[in-house]
């Protein structure tokens, strides 16, 4: 097992949705309104690596995570899993891929079927893939998955309904359902944002432990930079459907380059007294992804924006080993700042 073995390689991924228009609009306007939720993303995730995807709502981070798992249809681009391109029109191949790539959802109160006992919910992936023959085997595997997720002893949780568990326990049960197939890759969509702070760190520890013990690769989607820093090897900052900066997590936090990353960092809540912190609170909100600004998509809110930013879209360029940024300020021909 090589350490740097690539698990997921996303190339030029685009996800677009048609906006539903009213009946009259549909008749009278020829132009379709399109939301470019993900607008050309390249992303590599290696074995035993946690990559965090950070952005505000509307940045397309969740859509990207779901698109990688084929939970929303991909408009353009390809996804390589362990070096092999996945053909999403081939149902068998998709099923096989789903087997190895799982998702953890944000809201543990909603992500478990309220009518399913824990044992049935956790065992469901086994049944769908015909992986168990006897009830005994099924129970054993569920208990193991529950205990691997920190619900020990597993027997005590088998015959409970979701509403009988606390938030943290539910999230662990959902994680058990994802682990039972021994996946290689997990997309974790804000897995702790709905939980109380005191419970959060337990779930984070669990994910880190899984990464270590099973060499799992994670895509960790979050709006919280400090969480991303804590848990991940790499951080990718997304803005309006594109990655604007990506690099090692310490590098991003300590030596960020993109003005958007810097603004996010400056307002990051830190439990410290900081009355005179130099906060760069951006004006306005993230634009509507159906009307992406021309040029650099951040130019409308950027304090450093100059003429070129309004015309030309910057490319993601490597500034340092593994640290990429998409901003004209860092292109070679620019000599300012």
């Amino acid at each position: 097992m090589k350490k740097n073995e690539n698990i997921v390689d996303v190339k030029g991924l685009k996800v677009q949705f048609d906006i539903k228009q009213s009946f009259l609009q549909e008749i009278f306007t020829k132009k379709r309104k399109i939301v470019k939720a993900v607008d050309g993303v390249d992303l590599k995730i290696n074995k035993g690596e946690i990559v965090s995807l950070v952005g505000e709502s509307g940045s397309g981070k969740t859509t990207l995570g779901k698109a990688i798992l084929d939970l929303v249809p991909v408009t353009e681009g390809e996804i390589l899993f362990k070096g092999k391109k996945i053909d999403f029109s081939n149902k068998k191949e998709v099923k096989k891929f789903r087997h190895k790539a799982q998702m953890i959802f944000q809201d543990p109160y909603q992500s478990l079927d309220p009518k399913s006992l824990v044992i049935d919910a956790v065992a469901e992936p086994l049944e769908i893939n015909n992986l168990v023959k006897t009830a005994e085997e099924r129970k054993e595997k569920v208990i193991k998955a529950l205990e691997d997720s920190g619900l020990a002893p597993g027997e005590n949780f088998l015959y409970r309904f979701p509403y009988e568990l606390s938030g943290g326990q539910r999230q662990r049960a959902a994680i058990a359902g994802s682990l039972i197939l021994n996946p290689d890759f997990i997309v974790a969509d804000e897995p702790v944002s709905m939980l109380d702070v005191s419970v959060r760190t337990g779930i984070l520890k669990l994910l880190l432990g899984l990464k270590e013990s099973r060499d799992l690769a994670f895509l960790f989607i979050t709006h919280d930079l400090s969480l991303a820093w804590l848990i991940s090897d790499k951080i990718a900052i997304m803005y309006l459907g594109k990655i604007v900066e990506i690099g090692e997590s310490d590098e991003i936090i300590k030596k960020s380059l993109h003005p958007y990353t810097q603004a996010l960092l400056s307002i990051m809540p830190i439990p410290e007294v900081h009355k005179n912190r130099n906060r760069k609170v951006l004006e306005g909100e993230i634009p509507n992804p159906s009307e992406i600004p021309k040029g650099c998509r951040f130019n409308t809110r950027c304090v450093h924006a100059f003429d070129k930013c309004k015309e030309v879209e910057p490319k993601l360029i490597e500034i340092k080993d593994g640290h990429f940024v998409a901003c004209h300020l860092f292109e070679e021909e620019y000599n300012g700042i």
Partner: peptide, 26 residues
């Protein structure tokens, strides 16, 4: 539209399973 249906789809369940095992009881 509830997240648990999406989770079950992510697990790999087909439409029939989702309708009979998850939507019907609900």
């Amino acid at each position: 539209e509830r997240p648990f249906v999406e989770r079950i789809r992510a697990i790999g369940a087909d439409d029939k399973t989702i309708m009979i095992r998850h939507i019907l009881p609900n």
